[in-house]
Simulated scan of single mutants.
Amino acid sequence: MHANILVLPGDGIGTEVTAAAVSVLRAVARRYGHEFHFEERLIGGAAIDATGEPLPAATLDAARKADAVLLGAVGGPRWSDPKAKVRPEQGLLAIRKALGLYANLRPVKPHRATLGASPVKPHLLNGVDLVVVRELTGGIYFGDKTRDAGAASDLCSYSVAEIERVVRHACTLARARRGKLTSVDKANVLETSRLWRETTERLVREEFPDVTLEHQLVDSMAMHLLAKPREYDVIVTENMFGDILTDEASMLAGSLGLLPSASLGDGKTGIYEPIHGSAPDIAGKGIANPYAAILSAALLLRHSLGLEREAACVEQAVSAALDAGVLTGDLAPAGRGVRTVEATRAVLENIEADCYVAELRD
């Protein structure tokens, strides 16, 4: 297969973790006889510094032409003034909107080697395997905003069509898993949530009668996600609720540095990124956890390129590295974490060795 992959390192540790993910994708290409072409462009704070814009036209043009986009992270203290008219996060929101990527998939499956890194008791984590599907291009983040000296407002709005398409995506995913969908809203207070709930009920009833649907209010969901995470399969929710709940869900896995994401639309092109931020406090120190970025590359192989065997190989290689105790500082006891390059090297070695052995077994 030939594929064009756009790499957007972004800011902070984004440059380090995307470099690790690219090295893994190159290894996959060599191992399986593919040809991946990588092009690098600016986004976020780095783009503001270079061009004055968080999403330069050249970056967006390259994204539209690419088969997939691998993103690092955006933002940092130098661009963090909330009063600034131009901010790194605007580039992220704009590229998602421009590419029509309305469904953000965030899988959460704690690894046995990292259960001790989670603040949640290990016995609650065994067997957890869930996916959060977050609506990505609507809601309060994209609504009209006003502010004067005495007040401010942010408009949250959703159309039936926006709700239908993301719920349909979540239902399709649930049907291929354990057949259970949990829809999260705030229907006891918000009109947008009441529309969300009514639309979800109708769509599931009409198109996915084999999927079991339950509703949760977002505040109770925040509690249940930590108290009984094994009960959930696919969780679908609106933009802001999803943003908050998935950061909470990262604690089930032990670290933000373990969770990948895929932003998808109706086509094959998607944006793949770890859910963590730019971590400016450790940027440039060579100690960032590359696993989430590498696992995001696995999602890229699966969803945009249709390479399931290769995606599974990468995921197995990361799992084997964790089994072997190759833990970065966010996962290991104080002072005992490995460096970014060591974690990446362990994955690369496993791709060459363990995946080959797995193929022979198959």
Rank of each mutant, 00 (worst) to 15 (best):
S153G: 12
S153D: 06
S153M: 12
D154S: 04
D154A: 06
D154G: 05
L155Y: 10
L155I: 12
C156K: 10
S157M: 12
Y158V: 04
Y158I: 00
S159E: 09
S159G: 13
S159N: 05
S159L: 08
V160F: 13
V160E: 15
V160R: 09
V160H: 07
A161L: 13
A161E: 13
A161P: 12
E162A: 02
I163F: 03
I163V: 15
I163M: 02
I163Q: 04
I163Y: 10
E164N: 02
R165H: 09
V166W: 02
V167N: 03
R168Y: 04
R168I: 12
H169Q: 13
H169L: 02
H169Y: 15
H169I: 01
A170I: 07
A170E: 01
C171T: 11
C171D: 06
C171W: 04
C171N: 11
C171A: 15
T172E: 15
T172V: 14
L173G: 14
A174G: 01
A174L: 03
R175M: 09
R175I: 13
R175P: 02
A176C: 00
A176Q: 13
A176Y: 04
A176E: 13
R177C: 00
R177I: 07
R177Y: 02
R177G: 01
R178K: 12
R178T: 00
G179C: 09
G179T: 01
G179I: 07
K180D: 04
K180S: 06
K180A: 10
K180V: 14
L181S: 03
L181P: 11
L181E: 11
T182S: 12
S183Y: 11
S183P: 09
S183R: 00
S183F: 11
V184Y: 01
D185W: 09
D185N: 12
K186V: 03
A187N: 07
A187Y: 03
A187I: 08
N188S: 06
N188M: 09
N188W: 01
N188R: 06
N188V: 11
V189Y: 03
V189H: 07
V189R: 08
L190K: 00
E191T: 15
T192D: 09
S193R: 07
S193T: 10
S193A: 12
S193I: 10
R194K: 15
R194C: 09
L195D: 06
L195N: 02
L195F: 03
L195G: 02
W196I: 04
W196C: 08
W196Q: 03
R197H: 12
R197L: 14
R197S: 15
R197C: 13
